[in-house]
């Protein structure tokens, strides 16, 4: 269960209309008139080069920044009228570097911090923390100091500390940065499971294979604007778009585009997909991979 209560303002999870953001110092436009509608339970990725406005957009979503024009309604709440703290029950924001938020003496206490801040009862806090521990598989670490666990676990603790607040909308900033393949894989799976539980997931990332694997919709940003909003398949197959934004489709998609796509094959997003198509064409079954994503 989530606390999703889309009110009268908007039935959408995220409803951004004409949002602009100009930094007060130096009149730098960081976001120029953006529209974005996301339905509850969607899982979207935001891509674009550094400085394209991705982070500004996500910061508008949880009220860390207020739009200088336009409206940003998240979980039915107008972010311009609420403080970040008031937005916390509505939208969770996982920062890129877990070291920027961990401070408590134990992982357990770290996870309790958010739920306590939003004023839940002790019983409810215990339930949510236990659930987050279970969900993220942190059972072995709850008594550890957050800085003493390995970086990948720290990252999970960081995400868990937000998820324990059960925000109906979860924003992840670069969840796979500095993570090994395994942890990325785990985070992938968690994002999907959260989506399955009804959480709207927004993932900002440069990790194209991760996005190709997990999101259903990709928002492409360039020079402070959204220039494309489509399925990962459409986005990654669009060579001009990729070239314009200096982005690179996942290698497997590139290979598919150069090989099977001209033959009528799929714009593969995962190795498994491409392998299946090749197997079908050659009549030889693909060798099973133990780490196949899924």
């Amino acid at each position: 269960m989530t606390d999703a209560t889309p009110s009268a303002l908007s039935p959408l999870a995220i409803d951004v209309r004409g949002a602009r953001y100009v930094y007060p110092t130096g009149n730098v436009t960081a976001l120029g008139g953006v529209d974005l509608q996301v339905k509850p339970g969607e899982i979207i990725g935001i891509i674009g080069q550094n400085g394209s406005g991705k982070t500004t957009l996500t910061k508008l979503l949880n009220g860390l920044l207020k739009p200088t024009a336009g409206t940003v309604i998240v979980d039915g709440v107008d972010t311009a009228k609420k403080s970040v703290q008031e937005m916390a029950p509505h939208v969770g924001y996982v920062f890129q570097n877990p070291n920027h938020q961990l401070f408590a003496r134990t992982v357990q206490m770290e996870l309790e911090f958010g739920p306590r801040n939003i004023g839940l009862s002790e019983e409810e806090i215990a339930v949510r923390v236990a659930e987050a521990v279970e969900f993220f598989g942190l059972q072995d670490y709850i008594e550890e100091h957050p800085y003493r666990v390995s970086f990948p676990i720290r990252k999970l603790v960081g995400i868990a500390s937000i998820v324990a607040m059960r925000p109906p909308i979860l924003i992840l900033d670069e969840p796979s940065t500095g993570q090994d393949h395994n942890t990325t894989h785990v985070i992938n799976g968690l994002m999907r499971r959260l989506r399955d539980q009804g959480t709207t997931v927004v993932c900002v990332s440069h990790d194209m294979p991760l996005l190709a694997d997990v999101v259903e919709r990709v928002i492409v940003m360039k020079s402070t604007e959204i220039i494309a909003d489509a399925s990962p398949r459409e986005v990654f197959a669009d060579k001009t778009l990729m070239a314009r934004t200096n982005l690179q489709a996942p290698q497997v998609t590139e290979i598919a585009l150069q090989t099977v796509v001209p033959l009528g094959g799929p714009v593969a997003l995962t190795p498994a997909e491409l392998a299946a198509d090749i197997a079908m064409r050659t009549g030889r079954p693909a060798a099973a991979r133990t780490d196949a994503v899924g």
């Binding site: 970040v84 937005m87 924001y93 961990l102 911090f113």
Partner: peptide
């Protein structure tokens, strides 16, 4: 700035004694 943003996003009230540890430890 980043740390304060991160903790505020977790509902930290950003004032008083309760805000000291979460902001200064990181």
């Amino acid at each position: 700035g980043i740390i304060m943003s991160a903790q505020k996003s977790r509902g930290m009230k950003g004032k008083g004694f309760s805000a000291v540890l979460p902001s200064f430890v990181p």
